[in-house]
Amino acid sequence: MDIIICVKRIPMTQEVDLEIDDSGKDIKKDALAYVVNDWDNYAIEESVILKEKLGGTVTVITVGDEDDEDVLRRALAMGADKAIRIEPGELELDGFLISNILAQVIKGLEYDLVLTGVQADDDNFGMVGIMLAEKLGLAHSAVVTGFEAEGSEATINVELEGGLDEVSKIKLPALLSIQTGINEPRYVSIMGIRKAGKKELNVVKVEDIGLSDEELVRQTIIEEYFLPPETEGAEMIEGDPSNVAEAILRILKEKGVSV
């Protein structure tokens, strides 16, 4: 089974104070560490598991600059066979435009399955995968938590709300957006990444893929970023852990919880 997987490198923002930059339309990113988007990591693992089981190739693609090659090399170290980086230059991207660019490149490739993460942890759109599916004319499903191929079909699990899953059959080729928890992504060592350096990594420029200027226009425009409005928020309990524990036990008692 030949699989294409689309990934994104994102800044890590947990346990970090974020600030808005001078443009008012982005956050200050200089001091942030970057990682592969968590959802994409599960999608990479899923593609490698399928390759190990069924044979075929895994091609990993990102739209981004040279620094973003980190996540491609990481995917190659996990078991992908080759990587493509599409250099967007100065283009201002949104989910729609990224899906346009990906579709243009992917339509020239051979594949049975295209995987993306459900969404990216930075801007949270959750739209690139399914837009890409529609442009490629593929069957699709979002929020997939299980996949079992059977010839030209696959049985999939889709996570719904409230602890309910939907089981469906889908025709291949298809595009699936992969939910976290579908597998346990393997550990990647520095050594592994170094070794994967020998694998094929091609760079294409967005101006060379054959999209017209009209097709390189985004559909959404950021007007401004702002920090969440101040709310009353939580009453903070100060002091050392034993004071905190005392306070918590007192609150439990007040609220009628017997401990």
């Binding site: 923002t13 947990q14 974020l18 808005i20 956050i27 942890d121 930075d122 801007d123 949270n124 226009v217 985004r218 559909q219 959404t220 425009i221 950021i222 007007e223 401004e224 970023y225 702002f226 920090l227 969440p228 409005p229």
Partner: peptide, 13 residues
């Protein structure tokens, strides 16, 4: 966005 740490206002083409 960014897990709720930032808000964004967006318009359309």
């Amino acid at each position: 966005i960014y897990s709720g740490k930032v808000f964004s206002k967006m318009s359309f083409k």
